[in-house]
Write a protein that binds this DNA or RNA. Sequence first.
DNA 1: GCGTACGGTAAAGAAATCTTTACCGTTTGT
DNA 2: ACAAACGGTAAAGATTTCTTTACCGTACGC
Lengths: 228, 228
Amino acid sequence: MKQATLLLIEDEEDVLEINREYFESKGYRAVCAPTLSQARFQLEEQAPDLILLDVVMPDGSGFDFCAELRQKTNAPIIFLTCRDENESVVKGLLKGGDDYVTKPYDLDILSARVTAQLRRRGNTAAGILELPPLTVDFLAGEAVLDGIHTALTLKELQLLGCFVIYAGQRLTFEKIYRRAWGEPTPGASDTVKAHVSNLRKKMKFDDGSWFELTSPRKNEYMFSKVRY
Amino acid sequence: MKQATLLLIEDEEDVLEINREYFESKGYRAVCAPTLSQARFQLEEQAPDLILLDVVMPDGSGFDFCAELRQKTNAPIIFLTCRDENESVVKGLLKGGDDYVTKPYDLDILSARVTAQLRRRGNTAAGILELPPLTVDFLAGEAVLDGIHTALTLKELQLLGCFVIYAGQRLTFEKIYRRAWGEPTPGASDTVKAHVSNLRKKMKFDDGSWFELTSPRKNEYMFSKVRY
DNA sequence: GCGTACGGTAAAGAAATCTTTACCGTTTGT
DNA sequence: ACAAACGGTAAAGATTTCTTTACCGTACGC
């Protein structure tokens, strides 16, 4: 993944500097904002991948700012604060925060939490589904397996996306059709069957690759990783 | 959202029971597993939306089981444990956990963390991009605005997805083309222009709706919410 | 052993998408 | 004021996708 950009919003200059140095040493690009108004500016310019937000800021409440952020970005928000009262934690998480870390915090733990959030963002927020080593990229209109990019049609993407989301579960033809076509299967139709066949051919799911696309029951498909 | 299913993996029966009652009272469906082997079974049967995982289990390590889970499901995993050494927290998060809560924990905080994880999953993990009140659903092949569902073509979905992800930022024609076509714009091409036109017509972005799709600079588009 | 049901593939017609072209109104620069 | 550049829309042809149909092999029940 390309270098991720972190937006650090924190009023204590020395804490801000320590954090900035730490995350830059970890390979991130760190953008700092000691006030909420500066944070607003940086948000437009930098488009951060994740935001670390102090609850207590000179020009407003971090909680309220969180709601404002949510309007503009889907980036994960991790609250940082001294307050460790339960009520405060709950409020932060329910206001739209993704995590809540109380000071004093261990930088390695904070870093691990950042990693955890970014990992999930990478999997999802960018219109991408992942079931390593398979990636379905709706935005690019393709799937990637073992480094091989394969352009897929819309229906193939929908189908494969469906399989990835419900990986390991049995999916009836009917459920699949409803999910991807938005309506019940009309009378008799072998459309799904045909698309699955095309998908198999394009993605080479047979030939002992990473995945199996089988039919364990009548009128059902199951998609799973090859165990080895 | 439909009732979410939680998988509680915990060897202490009384703790398990307390958690089960608590989450059921909160409106969740709670599935219990006092051993890892039972967890494996439940995983197949129930397809949980989120997993609460105790690190110390009689028949194996929660950390290792987490890696196993990641093979089968994308559901968020929250670790529960007495261990609060930094090293343990970091390990859990890097092994594929989404959050880590140490015992003794406050049930309301745990619940808030569950909510935060599910909120993000609902927004993203299912192949959906959201910029309320606009939703781009790749799996369904449609966009939803003000409750109106509009079926889109693949290129339109890619384009709109691109706009949602980079909402509020200026996007050059070239960047857009690279993202959605995977290659630099060939010579002279008005393809993007044409698709944008179709998208506008289908989604009715003019006529004072929620969104603006403008061109603030030469060869650039900008997509943003209508401020009011 | 036979017939049926089912999963799978391939190919062809039907249908839609994608690209290009043409044209129009507005803005920009000279 | 004029020409050129640009954003926008609409329509047509080229291309691709989607659906249906046909056909093949295997598994299952009788």
